[in-house]
Design a protein around this nucleic acid. Structure first.
Lengths: 354, 354
DNA sequence: TGTCTCATTTACATCGATGTAAATTTGATG
DNA sequence: CATCAAATTTACATCGATGTAAATGAGACA
């Protein structure tokens, strides 16, 4: 019998056909160096003849790892996370790992514990990109497998963190519109529940930029958005417009909000960038093709993905000694496009200290 | 010793702590009905105490399946595929399966064989959404595990297919602009290599619609696009504009192309929809928020995902008898938005047979 | 040719779970 | 209380691969 009665061929079958031991087949396939050329050829011939493919479950059981990493994101339908997933999959693939994606928003409103969700699967480590995470979630991050969190470091967490320089990036975005002479700069995306995580850092960047120009912060220009979706961007801008508070620029905490805001401004006849300059954050692909195209902060997703993968795999493959949690900051880039560029508002005394 | 020296607890450890056999623990965990309440409680206590989690690799090895499905898409960074993946993950999750996503475009230009790529992983079945697939690819689809292809049926393929009614949908889209009085309808997205797969069907829908109105097809209005990306939409529209051929509507083979076209039209000062009506295809999220918002054909992604998952899992769990390949068509919906709506072009004799 | 060394190949146990079938307990009945 | 059937629980083999250590083979050298 050339192969098992039913189903795929096993190493057993290959060994029998090649007339060698099972271990020799294993050696050949795993690239063990002390295998004679003759043997290798004989085994590979049998492998080809039987269309043999290794049984991954059996190998995983034996070696105790799966070479599968988890990636937990809120929803793939949000462009930022889809593009992030793309980058993570590529970075992982280059190091011989596969990525299993878990969506943490299942019922469209509630974020579930990614970590708990991943336990069902056998993964070697997890990259977790939470929507928002606060100090209360520390214990959720205290797990017994390698975990890299994308986003602001949580106080007391033992997990590794990779995050872009949110404060500086948002400060740069805000300084950009200030440098164009705008002085009434609104911001969209503050969290209703108070400042935590990413939103807090970005808000801080905004505040610091205003301070640099000696401008006092106007609470009426700080608009909240419960979720960073386009719909909420539309809704937030509608609120701002309805309030009647004057403004000549908006910096948004992500591109989806900005695109929504763009839409609302357009609907209400505000010219962009003449009347209002708009800046987003994330540099998702749409932003380059919107009308007008969107000025935004690019977070260098590839760099984030690469760093996260490297740290995670080093933890997985490295020695057991538990080093201190890492906290890596990645760079950013301000991409100037039509929604802000080209139109400088002249003021009596443009520049610092208006 | 309460548990293995190093690493996670095993069923062995749980059994020892609870003072029962390993099989009883297995029975409790797998919900076997003939287990006394007392036993169940005792075992679950031990499970909790040891933080026991089942070893998925061992279980998979024993039962011979993994409850993991593959989903092969070109790139997650394309919104359509990200939204599709979202839908597939949800549908699979509802039936207790996990989804492993494989990107078939790795070097940004060449599509690799998804099926070959999946062989590395241990999946129970595969959903394959190819970019384009022609008759030459039949053997690629002739595999020995359950496979559902999303897209036009390939002649001679033994795989199951789930596809939307491309011809009818595109016909409806074209009829829509014709009903607005437009008579010079361009199309963007034809394949340079000749008509195959999805592009062929959509082109046919366009042709049929023109025929219904007794309009002769003008080859100058059929614009090719090698890839259905925004950039190619921009480039295709630039070509059309440069050609000087008059047109008052464009139907695009997907939303990305349409958004690119929108952008190019805007740049060249054409008013939408006054001068040119634009229609897309796919109903990705951006389309509702572009300026102007995009009229498009919604393919009911949830329905596609659900059908594909149901067929695939039925094949996996069903009896071995190989039924004839299934070919399921899913519905569509024309979503009218700003890029076409509201502006009717009056003609001497608007209506059938101009 | 005999002996020793180093390179290859092999036998066997093992990873952690589940299916099979047998052993044991439980409870009903005469 | 003995007997039998049904309900529970258990022992053991097994899924398909790899690590360990021992067995075998091939040269090298005296």
């Amino acid at each position: 019998m050339a192969r098992s009665a039913r189903g795929a061929a096993t190493m057993q079958d290959v060994a029998a056909l090649a007339g060698v031991s099972v271990k020799t087949v294993s050696n050949v396939l795993s690239g063990y160096e002390h295998v004679s050329a003759k043997m290798r050829e004989r085994v590979m011939g049998a492998v080809g003849e039987l269309d043999y493919e290794i049984n991954v479950s059996a190998r995983n059981l034996r070696v105790g790892s799966t070479r599968v990493l988890g990636l937990a994101v809120p929803e793939l339908s949000q462009a930022y996370f889809a593009e992030l997933a793309d980058a993570v999959i590529r970075a992982a693939g280059a190091r011989g790992y596969t990525v299993l994606i878990e969506q943490t928003i299942v019922d469209r409103s509630l974020e579930i514990s990614a970590v708990a969700a991943m336990r069902r699967h056998s993964i070697d480590g997890l990259i977790y990109s939470p929507l928002a995470i606060g100090p209360g979630d520390v214990e959720q991050l205290d797990v017994d497998f390698p975990l890299v969190v994308l986003g602001e470091r949580v106080e007391g967490s033992r997990a590794d963190h990779v995050t872009m320089s949110n404060v500086q990036a948002m400060k740069a975005a805000t300084l950009h519109v200030l440098s164009l002479g705008r002085r009434r700069v609104a911001v969209i995306g503050a969290q209703p529940d108070g400042p935590v995580g990413t939103a807090a850092s970005r808000l801080r960047g905004y505040t610091e930029a205003l301070a640099d120009y000696g401008i006092e912060q106007d609470p009426d220009l700080i608009i909240t958005a419960a979720l960073w979706h386009r719909t909420y961007g539309v809704e937030a801008m509608e609120r701002l417009l309805a309030s009647g508070v004057p403004f000549d620029a908006v910096v948004c905490f992500n591109d989806a909000l900005a695109l929504g805001a763009l839409r609302a401004l357009h609907k209400h006849g505000r010219r962009i960038p003449e009347d209002v300059a708009v800046v987003g954050f994330d540099d998702i692909e749409d932003s380059a093709y919107s009308t007008p195209s969107l000025t935004t902060v690019s977070p260098r997703r590839d760099e984030i993905a690469q760093k996260a993968i490297d740290i995670l795999i080093d933890r997985i493959e490295g020695p057991d000694t538990r080093l201190a949690p890492l906290h890596v900051e990645t760079g950013y880039e301000l991409i100037e496009r039509e929604s802000s560029a080209g139109v400088r508002v002249e003021r009596e005394a443009a520049g610092i200290s208006s």
